[in-house]
Design a protein around this nucleic acid. Structure first.
Lengths: 198, 198
DNA sequence: ACCTGAACACCGTTCAAGT
DNA sequence: ACCTGAACACCGTTCAAGT
């Protein structure tokens, strides 16, 4: 045997996780068009048909990526809220900033999360996004109890807040908002929600 | 000659327009994954290499579709504003509803408009979206003059309004907002902007 | 249970050649 | 100026077979 590299055993052992990690990197660095199952198999050192065991088709892989993305974004938003000091508006701004930062750092992933033709397993993605929506729900509840947000159906207010953050992210990603204006726009959005309530 | 159908002449004559029309239909009815240059050529009755004369590559076709989409959406929003009767809030709501209706009726096209990896011709897409942004700018100006919208930089308010509409559309398209709740969410958004100013 | 290798039907893109 | 036909290097997906 020349070269001395230990041969990978016939069974990879962590193929599913390896594929997901490699896919996330490719998605972030090169965009969704560069994401091919064959290429992923090549970079992971298995045959082109091996991924089939773990992902029924390309869409199943994309769904899994979106699912992981929701969990991750939910964690980021929660961490930003918990780590922020200051009044309610400051905490809301921290959460909003974390959201938009995630969106610009991993634009293709965010887009994947908010498109979803038809999840292979119906109900999986709504469940995954519940983590994010739950974090925002907590934040809404706090704001309404502190009279820092307008009263009314918290569910609709939550949707409206997520929509606004999502929309800002979309504008930044598409280049219609220059990167320097991002923070100001986020601050404007937060001010709009907390207007005459601080 | 059997069948009697007049043979298409060697030169199609309106190939570019025919390709765009067919592409718009496919995009709307079957989504972006079903949009292939070869299939488009087939359905238009030319060889698979013919589209190359009019669109350098697949991305150039997508850019052209996005460009047309912006012009169309701008027209829709303008028409809604002009056709609405009632106070300012009613006109703003009409515009917002037109936007979201467009988004849900042609989800894949809207997504194309707000992704844009890198337009083949830099500057073409920003120019096309100016039609939409101009319509919204007019609406913002009217609102601020009538004291129906908060004062401040109209440019930022415009971005924020577009972001909110875009975000609502994204939530509806991804199925996170049920279709029945769409109108209520749009009304909430409009109320948020005009709050304590009507 | 997990992976390989060959096969099939598609793509986008290129380019010499035809009208 | 516009379109064709063959060619190239890719895909996703399927399936019998190997370990």
């Amino acid at each position: 045997m020349i070269g001395g590299m230990a041969d990978r055993p016939y069974h990879h052992g962590h193929l599913r996780a390896a594929l997901l990690a490699e896919a996330e990197r490719t998605l972030r660095e090169e965009g969704i068009d560069a994401l091919s199952l064959r290429d992923l198999a090549r970079q992971t050192g298995v045959s082109h048909a091996a991924p089939r065991r773990h992902f029924a088709d390309r869409q199943a892989l994309l769904d899994a990526l979106a699912e992981a993305g929701f969990a991750w974004l939910g964690d980021e938003v929660r961490a930003a809220v918990n780590g922020a000091s200051g009044d309610y508006q400051a905490r809301l701004r921290a959460a909003a900033t974390a959201y938009v930062r995630f969106a610009t750092a991993d634009a293709a992933l965010l887009q994947l999360m908010f498109t979803v033709k038809n999840a292979s397993q119906p109900g999986v993605l709504p469940e995954a996004s519940a983590s994010l929506f739950g974090a925002v729900s907590d934040l809404i509840g706090q704001g309404q109890r502190a009279d820092a947000l307008p009263p009314g159906d918290p569910g609709r207010l939550r949707l409206l807040l997520v929509a606004t953050l999502q929309g800002i992210a979309a504008l930044v990603i598409s280049g219609r908002v220059p990167a320097e204006q991002t923070d100001a726009l986020v601050a404007d959005a937060v001010a709009l929600f907390t207007r005459s309530h601080n």
